[in-house]
Design a protein around this nucleic acid. Structure first.
Length: 190
DNA sequence: CGAACGATTAGCT
DNA sequence: GCTAATCGTTCGA
């Protein structure tokens, strides 16, 4: 049993949605797999792009929930987020890693790699493997080319500090599928 | 208008 | 472990 997620499924707090998304299936034009790592960001969060308010770049974060927020990272990578809460709030979930399941050969070609483990284990790698670009910024997640499907039951989730940020490191809003080999980095033992 | 800085990754020591 | 690559966004003068 599985059900396609729709905007109402993204109306909760970003850290709750980030946990619920672990184990869900994400596909872009049929290419993708199981979400194994996410991070949550919120308006009242110094590490979030939305912290200082709406700008041209983060406009999609302040749009309706259940849509994509795509941004350029380090001038090189495209990173994909799911917008949460309600329109105007500015919350989102960064998709950090996926377990490749569908269209693996396409992802190999896009990444120039054979190793399945390294295809989608990081936000920039996910962007490259799924061909994410600014064209998808603000696009609805319940329509083509996206397909986001929940799986039965709640996966076993571990958490820790978010990666690559300098502010609010005490907030443990990075989440991962326990024991997955496809995480961008392992979680520290508690 | 100039400059600093990333929600990163790959490659080399 | 360390750093270059690479460029849009943001902020200060």
């Amino acid at each position: 049993m599985s059900k396609r997620l729709h905007p109402a499924d993204f109306a909760g707090d970003s850290h709750e949605v980030a946990i619920a998304l672990i184990g869900a299936i994400l596909m872009v034009n049929g290419v993708g797999g199981r979400i194994v790592e996410t991070e949550a960001y919120d308006r009242q969060d110094p590490a979030s792009h939305s912290f200082a308010g709406p700008t041209a770049r983060n406009e999609a974060m302040f749009g309706p929930p259940g849509r994509a927020y795509v941004y350029r990272s380090y001038g090189i990578h495209w990173c994909l987020n799911f917008v949460c809460r309600e329109e105007g709030h500015g919350a989102g979930v960064l998709i950090r890693a996926i377990e490749p399941l569908f269209g693996i050969d396409v992802m190999r070609a896009r990444r120039g790699l054979a190793e399945p483990r390294l295809l989608c284990s990081g936000p920039g790698r996910v962007g490259q493997a799924l061909a994410i670009t600014r064209d998808l910024d603000g696009a609805r997640l319940d329509r083509a080319p996206f397909k986001v499907v929940a799986t039965t039951g709640q996966a076993a989730v571990e958490s820790g500090p978010r990666i690559g940020i300098s502010k609010a490191r005490e907030v443990h809003w990075r989440f991962g599928l326990a024991g997955s080999r496809y995480l961008s980095r392992p979680f520290a033992r508690s």
